[in-house]
Amino acid sequence: MDWQVRKDGGRLIGQPRGRVDETTWEKFSNDLIAAVREAAAAGLPLTVDLTGLDYMSSRGLRALTMAKREAGDAVAITLAGPNERMREILAISRYDKLFEIVDDVGL
């Protein structure tokens, strides 16, 4: 799993690529938490660009939860551009009730 982060349009955008499973979730979690802290320090919201992500298992979903807890009220987290598979996973896990999900990153 690859991870890139950039600032764009008054927000921080983190972009994972590949899949998040039992072999890659720790890197994803660490990168995501670092992005939350960077966004908090800069006073920016965080968009997680999911367009390059194949899927994530519960390990990845739980990393999202850890990030949300780290963010608290300081950083708003939005999930953007999930593919059909990710959209199904977010719905089945009911994470679509925990996170704001938008269709595209809106560059």
């Binding site: 519960s58 979903l61 739980r62 089945i92 896990s93 009911r94 994470y95 009730k97 925990l98």
Partner: peptide, 19 residues
């Protein structure tokens, strides 16, 4: 659901279909 188990029902002692 996993979503409930990590939010409203955290620490209620149960698991999810996803896990």
């Amino acid at each position: 659901s996993l979503g409930d188990s990590v939010s409203l029902k955290q620490d209620w002692g149960h698991s999810s279909n996803i896990v």
